[in-house]
Measured scan of single mutants.
Amino acid sequence: KLPPGWEKRMSRSSGRVYYFNHITNASQWERPSGNSSSG
């Protein structure tokens, strides 16, 4: 399961899957890690 705020999306241009955070408006190709504590 993804960390809070993150969701899986697909890029229309490349067709690749990326991850988008609707809370911080951040996007990245790598899967966000939800196990590590923020610090």
Score class of each variant (00 low, 15 high):
Leu2Phe: 03
Gly34His: 13
Lys8Trp: 07
Gly39Leu: 10
Leu2Asp: 15
Lys1Ile: 14
Ser14Ala: 07
Leu2Ala: 02
Ser33Glu: 12
Glu30Val: 06
Trp6Met: 00
Phe20Tyr: 15
Asn21Trp: 01
Lys8His: 05
Ile23Gln: 08
Thr24Tyr: 04
His22Pro: 07
Arg9Trp: 03
Leu2Tyr: 03
Ser14Gln: 08
Pro3Gln: 03
Glu7Val: 13
Tyr19Ile: 00
Thr24Ile: 04
Ser38His: 10
Leu2Arg: 02
Val17Lys: 03
Trp29Gln: 04
Tyr19Met: 00
Thr24Gln: 03
Arg31Met: 10
Gln28Ser: 08
Gly15Leu: 05
Ile23Gly: 04
Ser27Met: 15
Met10Val: 15
Ile23Ser: 06
His22Gly: 05
Ala26Glu: 14
Ser36Phe: 10
Pro32Lys: 01
Gly39Pro: 12
Asn25His: 14
Gly15Asp: 04
Pro4Asn: 08
Lys8Ser: 07
Asn25Trp: 08
Gly39Asp: 11
Ser36Gly: 13
Gly15Ser: 05
Arg9His: 06
Ser37His: 10
Ser36Cys: 14
Trp29Lys: 04
Ser13Tyr: 12
Glu7Ser: 09
Ser33Thr: 15
Ser11Met: 11
Asn21Gln: 02
Glu30Gln: 09
Gln28Pro: 00
Arg16Asp: 03
Gly15Thr: 03
His22Asp: 03
Ser38Trp: 09
Thr24Met: 04
Lys8Asp: 02
Ser37Cys: 11
Val17Ser: 06
His22Gln: 09
Tyr19Asp: 00
Trp6Lys: 00
Ser14Asn: 10
Trp6Arg: 00
Pro3Met: 03
Phe20Glu: 00
Arg9Ala: 04
Trp29Ile: 06
Lys8Val: 15
Lys1His: 13
Ser36Thr: 13
Gly5Glu: 05
Ser14Thr: 14
Ala26Gly: 06
Ser36Pro: 12
Ser27Lys: 13
Ser33Gly: 12
Thr24Asn: 05
Ser33Arg: 09
Thr24Asp: 05
Arg9Val: 05
Ser37Pro: 12
Gly34Ala: 14
Glu30His: 10
Ile23His: 09
Arg16Leu: 07
Pro4Tyr: 12
Glu7His: 10
Glu30Phe: 06
Ser36Trp: 08
Tyr18Asn: 00
Ser38Asn: 12
Val17His: 07
Lys1Ala: 13
Gly15Pro: 02
Ser27Arg: 15
Ser37Glu: 11
Ser33Phe: 10
Met10Pro: 03
Glu7Gly: 04
Lys8Leu: 14
Trp6Ser: 00
Arg16Glu: 05
Arg31Ser: 07
Met10Ala: 07
Lys8Phe: 06
Tyr19Thr: 00
Arg31Phe: 14
Ser37Thr: 11
Arg12Ile: 13
Leu2His: 02
Ser37Gln: 12
Tyr19Ala: 00
Gly34Gln: 11
Gly34Ile: 13
Lys1Asn: 13
Trp6Ala: 00
Ser13Ile: 14
Arg9Gly: 02
Asn35Met: 11
Gly34Ser: 13
Gly5Trp: 05
Ser11Tyr: 09
Arg12Thr: 11
Asn35Leu: 13
Ser11Cys: 15
Asn21Ile: 02
Asn25Ala: 07
Pro4Ile: 08
Glu30Asp: 09
Val17Gly: 02
Lys1Phe: 12
Arg12Met: 13
Ser13Phe: 11
Phe20Asn: 01
Ile23Met: 08
Arg16Ala: 06
His22Leu: 14
Ile23Thr: 07
Tyr18Phe: 09
Glu30Met: 07
Ser37Trp: 10
Gln28Cys: 11
Gly34Arg: 09
Gly39Phe: 08
Ser36Gln: 11
Arg9Met: 06
Ser38Pro: 12
Gly34Tyr: 14
Ser33Ala: 10
Ile23Asp: 08
Pro4Gly: 06
Gly34Pro: 11
Trp6Asn: 00
Gly15Gln: 06
Arg12Cys: 15
Gly39Ile: 11
Arg9Tyr: 06
Asn25Gln: 14
Ser37Asn: 12
Phe20Val: 05
Ser37Arg: 09
Ser27Ile: 15
Arg16Lys: 10
Gly34Leu: 13
Arg12Glu: 10
Gly39Arg: 08
Gly34Lys: 09
Gln28Glu: 03
Asn21Ala: 02
Ser11Thr: 10
Leu2Lys: 14
Pro4Gln: 07
Asn25Ile: 04
Leu2Ile: 05
Pro3Gly: 05
Arg12Tyr: 10
Pro3Cys: 07
Tyr18Ser: 01
Glu30Ser: 06
Ser13Gly: 11
Ala26Asp: 08
Gln28Leu: 03
Ser27Gln: 08
Thr24Ser: 06
Lys8Gln: 13
Gly34Val: 13
Trp6Tyr: 02
Ser27Gly: 05
Lys8Thr: 09
Ser27Cys: 15
Ile23Pro: 01
Ile23Phe: 12
Ser37Ala: 13
Pro3Ala: 04
Ser36Glu: 14
Gly5Gln: 04
Arg16Pro: 01
Phe20Trp: 09
Ser11Leu: 13
Ser38Tyr: 08
Arg16Phe: 06
Ala26Lys: 15
Asn21Gly: 01
Ser36Asn: 11
Val17Trp: 13
Met10Leu: 14
Pro4Leu: 08
Ala26Ile: 14
Ser14Arg: 07
Leu2Val: 04
Ser11His: 15
Ser33Lys: 10
Ala26Arg: 14
Asn35Ser: 12
Tyr19Ser: 00
Asn25Val: 03
Gly39Tyr: 07
Gln28His: 04
Ala26Pro: 00
Arg12Leu: 14
Ser11Pro: 02
Ala26Gln: 15
Ala26Thr: 14
Ser13His: 13
Ile23Ala: 07
Leu2Thr: 03
Lys8Arg: 14
His22Ala: 10
Val17Leu: 06
Arg9Lys: 08
Glu30Leu: 06
Arg31His: 12
Glu30Ala: 08
Lys1Leu: 13
Pro3Val: 02
Ile23Asn: 09
Ser27Val: 15
Arg31Asp: 08
Ser37Val: 12
Gly34Trp: 15
Pro3Lys: 02
Phe20Pro: 00
Pro32Phe: 02
Asn25Thr: 06
Ser38Ile: 12
Glu30Arg: 07
Pro4His: 10
Arg12Asp: 08
Tyr19His: 00
Ser38Leu: 11
Trp29Ala: 05
Trp29Met: 06
Ile23Lys: 06
Ser14Leu: 09
Arg16Tyr: 05
Ser13Gln: 10
Arg31Thr: 07
Pro3Phe: 02
Asn25Gly: 15
Ser36Lys: 10
Ala26Phe: 09
Gln28Arg: 05
Phe20Gly: 00
Met10Gln: 09
Met10Asp: 03
Arg9Leu: 06
Gly5Ile: 02
Gly34Met: 14
Asn21Tyr: 04
Ser27Ala: 14
Arg31Lys: 09
Pro3Glu: 04
Met10Trp: 15
Pro4Asp: 09
Pro32Gly: 01
Arg31Pro: 10
Asn21Met: 02
Tyr19Gly: 00
Ile23Tyr: 11
Trp6Gly: 00
Gly39Ala: 13
Glu30Trp: 09
His22Tyr: 15
Trp29Val: 05
Ser27His: 11
Tyr19Trp: 06
Trp29Leu: 07
His22Asn: 11
Ser11Glu: 12
Leu2Gly: 02
Asn35Glu: 13
His22Ile: 15
Trp6Asp: 01
Gly34Glu: 14
Gly15Arg: 07
Pro32Cys: 01
Ser36Tyr: 07
Trp6Thr: 00
Ser13Asp: 09
Asn25Asp: 04
Trp6Ile: 00
Ser27Thr: 13
Arg16Trp: 05
Leu2Met: 05
Ser11Asn: 08
Ser36His: 10
Ser14His: 09
Asn35Tyr: 09
His22Phe: 14
Lys1Tyr: 11
Arg9Asp: 00
Ser38Gln: 10
Ser38Thr: 12
Glu7Gln: 08
Phe20Leu: 03
Gly34Phe: 14
Glu7Cys: 12
Glu30Gly: 06
Ser33Tyr: 10
Ser27Asp: 02
Ser14Tyr: 07
Gly5Arg: 01
Ala26Val: 15
Asn35Asp: 13
Gly5Pro: 08
Pro32Ile: 01
Asn21His: 04
Arg31Val: 10
Pro3Asp: 04
Ile23Arg: 06
Gly5Asn: 06
Gly5Ser: 03
Pro3Arg: 02
Pro4Thr: 08
Gly15Asn: 08
Ser27Pro: 03
Asn21Lys: 02
Trp6Pro: 00
Ser37Leu: 12
Ser33Asn: 12
Arg12His: 11
Pro32His: 02
Pro32Asn: 01
Lys1Thr: 14
Ser11Gln: 12
Ser13Leu: 12
Tyr19Arg: 00
Arg9Ile: 06
Val17Cys: 10
